[in-house]
Design a protein around this nucleic acid. Sequence first.
DNA 1: CTCGTTGCAAAGGATTTGCACAAGT
DNA 2: ACTTGTGCAAATCCTTTGCAACGAG
Lengths: 151, 151
Amino acid sequence: MGTEHGAAPLAERLRAHGLRLTAQRQRVLEAVGALEHATPEAIGARLREQAGPGGAAADTSTVYRTLEVLERLGLVWHTHLGKGAPVYHAAEHPHLHVVCSSCGEISSADPDLLAGAAERLAAELGFTVDVGHVALSGTCRACRERAQEKS
Amino acid sequence: MGTEHGAAPLAERLRAHGLRLTAQRQRVLEAVGALEHATPEAIGARLREQAGPGGAAADTSTVYRTLEVLERLGLVWHTHLGKGAPVYHAAEHPHLHVVCSSCGEISSADPDLLAGAAERLAAELGFTVDVGHVALSGTCRACRERAQEKS
DNA sequence: CTCGTTGCAAAGGATTTGCACAAGT
DNA sequence: ACTTGTGCAAATCCTTTGCAACGAG
């Protein structure tokens, strides 16, 4: 297990941008890594739970502002999976999001799935697909079967 | 040009569901077909413009409710391209949406691009990708070049 | 000490909902 | 007539913003 990227990049990248290392920023980043597919709301909730005796949660607005910063630093990414649900995840393990439009189930898939499509788009339109941001919607096996027996 | 699906399906499908054919529903459907990548707001605006002497626009809430109905009937589809921007399009010509996360430019692409990925997901996860709903985000050629010269 | 950060509360924008009236069948 | 659809306005939800106090460097 590499120690190289444990917690260092945050402090380092913040300094590089003239920004400051704060407890909130560390906590939000930690929360994004812990919760997969984290929404701002979920992150806020988690911080509130973890807020020990010191009462050290982060305000909603701070969560939003922090996520914005972390994204600019390249430490987290976000995707819109559907309606009002931006989902953040650590930038370290890029993966594809696959969402069932029926039950809302979120799965992850191999980014290579889009390699072919990405190449064609690059060649034909000069468009660079951002695999980490992509969300594929469709129907998961369970919902598909449920729909079939229904009709 | 086939007449088979011109305007008939609306009345037909509405009846099949015990719903009624109204002027608003016809107009909204027409607007979605006319405007590509139509947002609810844009649809409302268009209806307001077109509202002739009879003053026959549709209220915002009606637009939303109508789009919901039309989607249930399978006449229109929607995709979330980013933040608060649900985009509707006629279900007739399925296409992929490609959005530049930098400038917001929306392009359409060949659905076949995802054929390979769709097959693999179906085989590996039993997940059926809904190509019409998919939005790929990334960077368009113009923004990519702009970013390069900048740094 | 200086300037970035945070919390709080209020502002915004987009979508949804309740209800009485109008309209389709 | 009966029941669904519509407009209007109020209610929500999510996110952003202004500002004074706080804390990192």
